[in-house]
Each structure stands twice: as structure tokens, then as C-alpha cells.
């Protein structure tokens, strides 16, 4: 009894696990079907017919392109800021056991641990108080704040895995702090940073709750979608946009997974 219990999963467990996975994936797959439906007034199932024409319609929509452009811009800038801040934090925390490093970890986690609406409304009222007009930068300010944590987590994990004596070895061989960072630290954490950066980009690209408070009249892609969700006007275009968004976010996630999984082999496999 013991050995069979240890090496083979109970049937019920397996079923429950697989059903759980299906529950998570079927709704997303459904969107793929709807992107091709000929029905444009309701969410009718099963679709009365299939067509590709909505892709063309969507392609020719300037408002979608405009929203996409803003989203990419915001995500790119936020990612860069998050990379810098997250790496600095991770380096500080893993370098030394200083008083208050727990506080730093909490500070980094807080923006995602607290409900997004709080971050959003806090920033908005701060902008009001400080009389800052809404712009790309007000959106970036919010996004970078909660993106720091993903970069930080990835970088801290990599710092923890790499030997502390590498830095000492580099200094021992004549490299000062900056040269050590350039030639040893950076190459060793590069893949972790790339992964963290991709996740940060995905997080920012998708964010809507904070953005509604910090965007003013500007429309990012998620805000465009939110408007469609609240007041559906062009269901077929929304279906297509939704499907494209799913595909576009999957790529960085897959890439980030392979980067962190093979982190040690990417640099280490010369054969």
C-alpha cells in the first residue's frame, strides 16, 4: 500500500487536478472561437458561422492602434524604471544584512499586496494635491511602482544562487566595484533581469485598475477593452483584440520561463 501510494497518484486526485487545469484554460480558448464568429450583435453560442473579416476590420481601426501604441510606450518605460529600481534593491538586500532589510522587502511587495484601487486612488489624489496634470508619466509612475517587485524577486533569487565569492574573486583580480559589476555581476544576473523585465512588461501591459486613476483621458489598450466591456459597441473587434492580447502576453511568459529555468545553462552550455 505504501509504495503504490507514494509513486502513483490516487485517481480522484488526478481527475481533480486535470479538471482544475481545464477550468483555467477553457474560458481563454473560448475567446479564440469568438474571434471568428459571424455574429456581431450578441454573444451567441454556438456561433452561427465563421469568418476572418473581423481581423481586417480591427487592423483598420486607428483607435485600437492608438491605444496599443500608448500601452507599449507606458510598459516599456515602466519596465526600464522597474529594472533599475528592482536591481538596486535586490543588490542591496542580498549584499548585506542591514537593519531594515525586512522593511525594504515589505516596501517592494506592498504595491501588489494592497488592492490596486488603493494605489490608484492614492496616486490620483496625490496628483491632485500636487497639481500634476495627467500624462504618459503619471501612468508610468503607477506602473513602475508595482512592477519593481517582479524584477526584485527574480534578481534576489539569482543573487542568492550565485556564489558570493565571485564578487570577491573579481576584486581580488584587480577589478574595482564598477568593473566587477560590468564584467561579473551583470552577466550573471542578465537572464534573471531579462525574465523579470518581461514579466514587468506583461504586468504593465495588462494593468487596468491603477491606470483608470492615473490616465485621465488617455486610453491604453486595457482601458479601451474596459470601455468595451462596460458598454459593448463593437463586439467582434473586442473579440479579436482579446485574442491578440492573449497571444501577445503568452510569448514573454514562455520566454521568461525558459530564461529562468535554463538560467545556468544559457551561459554554461558550450558543447
Amino acid at each position: 500500500m505504501r509504495s503504490s501510494q507514494d509513486y502513483r497518484a490516487p485517481f480522484a486526485l488526478k481527475i481533480a487536478a486535470v479538471l482544475g487545469l481545464l477550468f483555467m484554460h477553457l474560458p481563454i480558448l473560448l475567446i479564440f472561437v469568438y474571434a471568428f464568429t459571424t455574429e456581431d450583435k450578441t454573444y451567441q453560442w454556438p456561433p452561427p458561422g465563421f469568418t476572418l473579416k473581423w481581423f481586417e476590420v480591427t487592423w483598420n481601426r486607428p483607435d485600437v492602434w492608438e491605444a496599443l501604441r500608448l500601452s507599449v510606450k507606458v510598459s516599456a518605460i515602466s519596465t526600464v524604471i522597474a529594472l533599475v529600481l528592482g536591481t538596486l534593491c535586490a543588490a542591496a538586500v542580498s549584499r548585506s544584512k542591514f537593519f531594515g532589510r525586512e522593511t525594504i522587502s515589505l516596501l517592494v511587495i506592498l504595491p501588489i499586496a494592497l488592492p490596486g484601487i488603493i494605489t490608484g486612488i492614492a496616486l490620483r489624489s496625490a496628483f491632485n494635491i500636487a497639481d500634476i496634470p495627467f500624462s504618459v508619466w503619471t501612468i508610468v509612475l503607477g506602473h513602475a511602482t508595482f512592477c519593481v517587485v517582479v524584477v526584485y524577486n527574480n534578481a534576489v533569487a539569482r543573487f542568492r544562487r550565485s556564489s558570493a565569492s565571485l564578487i570577491e574573486a573579481s576584486m581580488d583580480l584587480g577589478a574595482n566595484g564598477f568593473q566587477t559589476f560590468r564584467y561579473v555581476v551583470l552577466p550573471n544576473i542578465a537572464t534573471a533581469l531579462l525574465a523579470g523585465g518581461m514579466l514587468a512588461f506583461a504586468l504593465s501591459f495588462d494593468e487596468v485598475i491603477v491606470t483608470t486613476f492615473t490616465a485621465g483621458q488617455q486610453t491604453t489598450l486595457p482601458i479601451w477593452m474596459l470601455e468595451e466591456l462596460v458598454r459593448p459597441r463593437q463586439r467582434p473587434v473586442t473579440n479579436v483584440v482579446a485574442m491578440v492580447v492573449v497571444l501577445v502576453t503568452f510569448l514573454p511568459i514562455l520566454a521568461a520561463y525558459y530564461l529562468t529555468r535554463d538560467g545556468d545553462h544559457v551561459a554554461g552550455d558550450g558543447k
Partner: peptide, 16 residues
């Protein structure tokens, strides 16, 4: 993948 896929798209899927 479901964790990271778009929040709004997931909500939208359930609207469907």
C-alpha cells in the same frame, strides 16, 4: 499562463 494572461480578457471570457 492563466496567471499572466490579461485580466480583462479573462473577465471578458466570462462575460461570453
Amino acid at each position: 499562463l492563466p496567471l499572466w494572461s490579461s485580466y480583462l480578457v479573462k473577465v471578458y471570457a466570462w462575460k461570453l
